[in-house]
């Protein structure tokens, strides 16, 4: 199975931590959903750098693979990745939390290139992704549709309607990645509404399922480049992640689902992320 080279791994690692710093800089003006952004960032980074067929100069290219962030509140991660990919001027990032910004706390396709579909209310992304996949099949196009779902989000009934429909319609051009960080606004997902076991649920609904470490670039890459796992079945990737990954004092704590931060705390966080980047970077390869 093809693996990423040490050089590629290091590049992704550097990129993901540089983007964590960018996200913290965006947060300087107030608040944001940093927990889910940091838990899903590595997945979205691999998608845009290694998996998706896309062209930042042509965001509406007909044959592009589609990416929908169903858990729209994690969009700090998407903004950082899209800016890094060159979809828009990075300066736009620094308008986060300001009046009439193009990078609001939930993504808006009308104001920012690269946003495939506006999300924010949970449970909407997978149905829309299915619709795009149906259109692709109808038009005999080979584009694929990738969706990132939150594990807490999967308490929404509309997600399971869409899970049922995707397999009913044999949408093997759909891949759903569950960012299983185990936390939501008010605590542990297992305590608030236990959405587990994802693997058995998706399998029972007719999907092909794989479980990975959502911070292991090689695992993300190898898994996503092999979709669909089975012909005529949609693919589910259950990614075990750490909420607020990369920021030691906030990792795996639900208080950082949505962080109202003080500016001086941001400086501390940037130092913390830098340290983590060095520590992890030394172990790569």
């Amino acid at each position: 199975m093809q693996r990423l080279s040490k050089k590629e791994l290091l590049a992704l690692h550097q990129k993901s931590y540089a983007m964590r710093t960018d996200i913290l800089k965006m947060m300087r003006f107030g608040e944001g959903h940093i927990g889910g952004a940091f838990s899903s960032l590595d997945i979205i980074t691999v998608l845009y750098n290694k998996i998706l067929r896309h062209d930042p100069r042509k965001p509406k290219w007909e044959d592009r693979d589609r990416f929908i962030l169903s858990a729209g509140h994690k969009c700090l991660a998407l903004y950082a990745v899209l800016a890094d990919q060159g979809y828009f001027d990075k300066e736009i990032l620094w308008t986060y939390n300001t009046l009439d910004t193009r990078v609001p706390m939930h993504p808006d396709e009308k104001v920012l290139p690269g946003i495939e579909f506006p999300t924010g209310s949970l449970g909407h992304g997978l149905p829309v992704a299915n619709g795009m996949a149906l259109a692709g099949k109808l038009d005999q196009k080979d584009y694929r549709v990738f969706v990132v779902l939150g594990d807490g989000e999967c308490a929404e009934g509309s997600i399971w309607e869409a899970v049922m429909a995707a397999s009913h319609h044999k949408l093997d051009n759909v891949t759903a990645i569950v960012d299983r960080n185990g936390l939501q606004v008010n605590g542990r997902t297992a305590d608030i509404m236990d959405t587990s076991p994802f693997e058995k649920k998706f399998e029972a609904f007719g999907w092909a399922v794989k479980t990975i470490n959502g911070h292991d670039f090689n695992a993300i890459y190898q898994t996503l480049r092999n979709v669909p796992f089975e012909k005529e079945k949609p693919s589910a990737v259950i990614a075990d992640t750490i909420k607020c990954k990369g920021l030691d004092f906030a990792e795996d704590q639900f208080d950082y689902h949505h962080w109202h931060c003080e500016p001086e705390k941001i400086d501390e966080a940037i130092v913390c992320v830098d340290r983590k980047k060095r520590e992890e970077g030394a172990n790569i390869g």
Binding site: P127, G131, G157, A162
Partner: peptide, 26 residues
């Protein structure tokens, strides 16, 4: 028949799928 999509009794998903189809030129 190829342009007809049946969703059974799940209107929330069906409406989202109708939107996804329209977002893809339908």
């Amino acid at each position: 028949p190829k342009r007809h999509f049946e969703f059974g009794i799940q209107e929330q998903n069906a409406m989202g799928e109708a939107a996804g189809l329209a977002a893809s030129g339908k």
